[in-house]
């Protein structure tokens, strides 16, 4: 079980991690600034295994891979949204952060509620209600299963 951190529609990558922090040498140094302009307590409150839940077009804007990377570094288990912006979506899969499309979930859950997510079944459970999520295409699922593109490439070579 993990706690839900709920965000709105069109959350952009500047809101996830602002430009002024992109020059920090490592993602570890950036992560305490995640979502700073929206909720400056997010980074201190989120625990490994928690979830980010959002409405449409999560991660729109720039191509910065640091956006999914800071969420992964903070231990966010998955982002579940009605839809994702495509560059964020690709980047998340490539670094091994599960990004799950679920049209129904957002309108029925509240910030702070507990959620259980099964990546294998493609289902999310909150307050005893189970929500079906959209499965990834097999190509992307394969990259994600291997822990991201880096692991995937290394495996091909091995």
């Amino acid at each position: 079980m993990g706690k839900i951190f709920k965000f709105h529609t069109d959350v952009d990558t500047d809101q996830i991690i602002a430009s002024q922090y992109l020059l920090y040498p490592t993602v570890e140094e950036m992560k305490s600034h995640a979502f700073e302009s929206l909720d400056d307590s997010f980074a201190s409150r989120v625990q490994p295994g928690d979830y980010v839940v959002a409405a449409e077009n999560f991660g729109c804007g720039s191509s910065r891979e640091q956006a999914p990377a800071v969420l992964k570094a903070l231990g966010v288990k998955a982002v579940v949204a009605k839809s994702f912006a495509r560059i964020f979506f690709r980047n998340a899969i490539n670094i091994g952060l599960p990004v799950i499309v679920c049209k129904e979930l957002y309108d029925h859950v509240n910030d702070g509620e507990e959620m259980d997510l099964s990546l294998i079944d493609g289902t999310a459970e909150v307050n005893g209600v189970t929500y079906a999520c959209t499965k990834l295409n097999p190509y992307m699922q394969d990259i994600l299963n291997q822990g991201g593109l880096l692991a995937s490439l290394n495996r091909e070579e091995a």
Binding site: S63, R64, E65, I87, N91, N94, I95, G148, L149, L150
Partner: peptide
């Protein structure tokens, strides 16, 4: 032409 992240860029370079 389209934007990508740095991990995918590294993969293209190889």
């Amino acid at each position: 032409s389209s934007g990508i992240g740095y991990t995918e860029m590294a993969s293209i370079l190889g």
